[in-house]
Amino acid sequence: MAALHIWALVELHESVPGTRFSRFLDLAIAAFGPRLGKLLALFPVMYLSGGTCVMLIITGGGAMDDLFKTMCGGDGTACSIKPLDGVEWFLLFTCIAIVIAQLPDLNAIAVVSLFGAIMAISYGALIWILSVAKGRPEGVSYKPLVEVKSNEARIGSVLNAIGIIALSFRGHNRVLDIQGTLPCPSKGPMWRAVIISYSLIALCMYSLAIGGFWAYGSKIPNGGLYIAFPQFHGHDTPKLVMGLFYLLIAANCLSAFQIYAMPVFEDLELWYTGIRDRREQQWARASLRVFFGCLAFFVAVALPFLGSLAPLIGGMTSTLTFVLPCFMWLAIKRPCRRSGKWWLNVGLGWLGGVLWVVMVAAAIWVLVDRGINANFFNP
């Protein structure tokens, strides 16, 4: 289903002669008109990009903190350095991210993106290989983590998990921007790139899922292998290996921040140039990006438990992945009514819409049922 939606976006990039839709918002406006297009696409794109950047600050700042504790000890005596608190680690990560964010566009951050991809593959492979090599802890069970008491609770848990999976496809709306960096015609090269990249992603994810479940079973805590491996094997793993693990995670978060923040940067810059009615200046672009970084930092400090809301975030923004591409393809391509492609896109679009409603409802229901540790302003 996700593959068909990404295929639709790749096809739509050059669907109008003489025009390349290199932003999801531009494609939505071309398909549905200025008002409806902005209503359907602007908020989800901004919400998803901003929320992802906040989660990256939380994860990356936490990885920096863990790196320091691993190499210098909890009190910093091994390095004769006073340790930072959670807010200060978030601030350090944000400052580094803002400096890198001064690169103007996706073309300029291509090397940063490649570096981040290598870091992601490296730490993913490192964690599952070490988990399998270390062996299973005592008492590992493969029974469900929480005994479900009713069919309604079981269905809610399944839909909640689908919301988390939907969040993993949050990069789909970046396909158009990436394709815009390729020379015309771009459909062939872009589709080959999609196949190669998603093959690598599938290889990494399935290796993590299979190896991690074999190693820890139902003992995997909230946070997955990122938490499980240090918890069970951190004490008998060399300090340099653990430090490398946290360093790779922090580096990957820094590079990913640039990719997901770029739609927000572009929209802020377009808003500024529209109000000023003149070309954007270098100082204005830098100021807008610093402003967004500070805003994301504030939200990360205020809501350090945002990762617990992943099912809700994934459900609310799943329209970008599972709904809008189908109806945009119908509006722009205009296939014959009741043809095979028409039925396929209509069916997938409505199925995605129903899934969106159900996932959001399930995420809210699970949060109400299980509760959440809302540690406001206490990272």
Rank of each mutant, 00 (worst) to 15 (best):
K341Q: 07
D66T: 03
C253G: 03
P137Y: 09
G61V: 06
R154S: 13
A30C: 05
P83W: 08
A28V: 09
Y123N: 04
C184N: 15
F68L: 15
V87L: 03
L268I: 09
V194M: 12
P238S: 06
F291W: 07
L320P: 01
K82W: 12
S157P: 03
T181D: 07
V366G: 04
A125G: 06
P144Y: 13
A202Q: 09
Q258I: 06
A153I: 05
A215Y: 00
W7L: 13
L248T: 06
G116R: 02
Y246A: 00
V323W: 11
E88A: 15
K239E: 12
N252C: 13
V301I: 14
C204Y: 02
F322P: 03
L48A: 12
F298D: 06
F377W: 14
D105P: 08
Q281G: 15
A296K: 01
I372L: 04
I6G: 06
A193R: 14
G163P: 01
L40S: 02
Y123F: 14
A251K: 07
K82S: 12
D105R: 06
C95T: 13
N173R: 01
R285T: 00
F291P: 01
F115S: 03
S207P: 03
A331M: 06
V346G: 09
G73D: 03
A3M: 13
Y260S: 01
I165K: 06
L200A: 15
M119G: 05
G62N: 11
G234K: 11
S197K: 07
K187D: 07
W329A: 08
A117V: 11
K239W: 13
R174V: 15
W214G: 04
I332R: 06
W329I: 02
L248Y: 03
E11H: 14
A361M: 11
S168C: 13
A125W: 01
S22I: 10
K219R: 04
Q258C: 03
W89R: 07
V10W: 11
F298P: 02
M55I: 11
E138I: 13
R285Y: 04
F305T: 01
I98C: 10
T317P: 02
D105K: 08
P34M: 05
Q282H: 14
L48C: 09
G243C: 01
S287A: 15
I195E: 07
W350V: 15
I220A: 09
A117E: 09
S186W: 05
A300C: 08
E138K: 13
G314M: 07
P230V: 09
P379C: 10
L12V: 12
A3L: 12
N373V: 05
S199A: 07
